[in-house]
Design a protein around this nucleic acid. Sequence first.
DNA 1: CGCCGCTTTGAGTCCATTCAATTCCGGTGG
DNA 2: CCACCGGAATTGAATGGACTCAAAGCGGCG
Lengths: 254, 254
Amino acid sequence: MIAFVFLFDICQFLMQRMAAETLTLRAEDIHTVRSLPLFADISESQFGALMGAAFLQRFPAQTQLIHEGDQADFLHVIVEGMVEMFSTSNGEETTIGFLEPVSTFILAAVLVEKVYLQSARTLEPSRILMIPAQAIRDVFARDPAFAGPVVRELAERYREVVRQLKSQKMQSGLERLAAWLFARGERRGDVIETRIPFEKAKLASFLGMTRESLSRSFASLADHGVTVRGRVIFCNRPDALARLARTEHSTHDH
Amino acid sequence: MIAFVFLFDICQFLMQRMAAETLTLRAEDIHTVRSLPLFADISESQFGALMGAAFLQRFPAQTQLIHEGDQADFLHVIVEGMVEMFSTSNGEETTIGFLEPVSTFILAAVLVEKVYLQSARTLEPSRILMIPAQAIRDVFARDPAFAGPVVRELAERYREVVRQLKSQKMQSGLERLAAWLFARGERRGDVIETRIPFEKAKLASFLGMTRESLSRSFASLADHGVTVRGRVIFCNRPDALARLARTEHSTHDH
DNA sequence: CGCCGCTTTGAGTCCATTCAATTCCGGTGG
DNA sequence: CCACCGGAATTGAATGGACTCAAAGCGGCG
């Protein structure tokens, strides 16, 4: 049984290899990875060890990089493209987050040598740097300068998930949407502009609702100065959006 | 303004002091804290430094130990009693978790020198060891043996919250309840027995539903062999419970 | 025994989802 | 350049699950 699972893993790995394209690390890429807070402090030699063991691959869109439940064998770094973290249970799928360059993901599973709790797939053609988990753990054990950044990374991720859990439990879908638009939008004068860089269905899943509900939520936001033009959202009353995001239950306007 | 806030903090602290009772550390307590995975590996001298800066307090039930939004000044260790982690937003409150001896809480906020994202209160009379955040950070910086356990603790907490988020987004209240009963129950022969060590309303809030819904969920679980007797829950078909917990959507029985 | 707080039950309402149909949009090929 | 196609997004109607409000049990403790 174990043997079969192992064989299956190998097959999967080879198939992925075939679908992907292994690239040599370019100096420029190494530099961007090196500049990540996670790696900024470690010694040159340890960083060299990590990069020596790592490899960079190019994946097409919609490639599943990580399968929830697998042993965490690599720390992934997204160098270019876009990655979705998600989870599947009894056929249902929910989006847990999105990753843009340059960031690492699933550090927790790698460090504690456990299985992944989430899956990951590319949403665009992407370049991913894969560092063997063992190399990460080795450097962690050897280089004390690595501990600080690792802890900061973990702690920040933890706090992010706590925020997500809170908003999931205490806010309505409309409020989560407002908060998302506000947090991620860019101010242009007195309007705020937010671009959704993926399908709206993904955003809906991330916010914990259906596409239809998201669509209706956008419609409701018209009362708050929001205009939707495809994947670009404008709001000419950012304060109204912020107020809603902070979950204003007192105001029952209509 | 700042001065007033500071004054307020001091008042709060003093009031807490008055409500609480400062205790001297007993050798026995020190030993239990020392045996925590988080502290097991650090050097004797560093541990001594931590304990020297720390103090143990006894709090009555329903005492708020941590106010969400405050700067994280202490790492708390629950030595005896029961603590609830919760969060408040626009008047609504949600329970995020429960802590029993012996465990630490809010390590993440302490390490990154940020504000607490959650509040904490005692649910029973409790003894809490409070270690100044700065002492924790100092030891972390000085003793490399501390890094591993810290990372393991953080990583596990992170994974726990991810699990909570997933179950919140993908499972029904009924399924979450089944999962909770199953995970926390004790096998006695072919029945499983679970004791709820706090108000059912707290459990409802933790599971993300109202008391009424929780009550109705218990009623529905009767079909799965569940009997409720006050705060003690029995199930004579643990497999049915487990199946439901794994979120069996396919089976539409009746 | 009687009070008080927690829990349960009931009834009605509301909001999100589901299912279904239509519109919108980008890309392709004639 | 335009017609067409398919996937995505929106809209509508109906369902259902969870919540709110209200009232009635239950249980522990003085």
